[in-house]
Amino acid sequence: MKHYEVEILDAKTKEKLCFLDKVEPNATIGEIKGMFHKSHPQWYPARQSIRLDPKGKSLKDEDILQNLPVGTTATLYFRDLGAQISWVTVFLTEYTGPLLIYLLFYFRVPFIYPPKYDFTTSKHWVVHLACMCHSFHYVKRLMETLFVHRFSHGTMPLRNIFKNCTYYWGFAAWMAYYINHPFYTPPMYGEQQVKIALIIFLFCQIGNFSIHIALRNLRPPGSKTRKIPYPTKNPFTWLFLLVSCPNYTYELGSWVGFTVMTQCLPVAFFTLVGFIQMTVWAKGKHRSYLKEFRDYPPLRSPIMPFLL
């Protein structure tokens, strides 16, 4: 069996970082990352990006050396992706924040509102309902992160956690401040508005959960396989007939429901920003489905049926 020689250069400086002789032809990029890690302990595999071209795309961990367009002496380029952190950690910190921050405002802990309101409760029942919905939403997300989601990527750059937490925590504080404010004004159309909003919210929460379960069942434990998601027996998943990312559609619906329920402008703003962000993600996902599967259902739109 013929062995390969692999040299790893810095993608920016072209400096030679590592030379591996006698690499098995069927070695994967993942294994090469492991070997590289041994000579450079500061760069653990998850922060390595290995490419064939200094400015090209990163190779996948599953790629096999002998299947790559390289000679018996392969030149690979390395880029440091920066400190990495696991998705689960990021999600847990992202979602625990809003849950707790909202409750601080709900219980009116001191130094937020004038002192005479410390630890008082709102006289509007919608405020209590909103707190239940908000808490439910984030507890659901936390539970899903722990028990439902299967992540295809193990890590993300560390700085993302600061960015994401500022976004989620900041918005949660801004919304909670107004919803739980002693001068809160309940919705214009009273009970009817709140009831309709609650129905929308709960419907979309169940829908979102159903999609997450369907996506989980699509991917066997421990694998990275990708398949086209299709509607299942659960009617909430039938939205897959029309959109690629119904989980985002339902998430958007939940926040529309919460906006109608609280009639609070910051909530509407959060819904809008979330909508824009989720549309960007959904479009990316939709595009990658189209690229990967030739038989992808043509009727589907990324996030909004027939529209977007």
Binding site: F183, T185, P266
Partner: peptide, 9 residues
């Protein structure tokens, strides 16, 4: 200023 029907200040 609060209170107002948009619940924002």
């Amino acid at each position: 200023r609060l209170p107002n029907k948009y619940n924002v200040s």
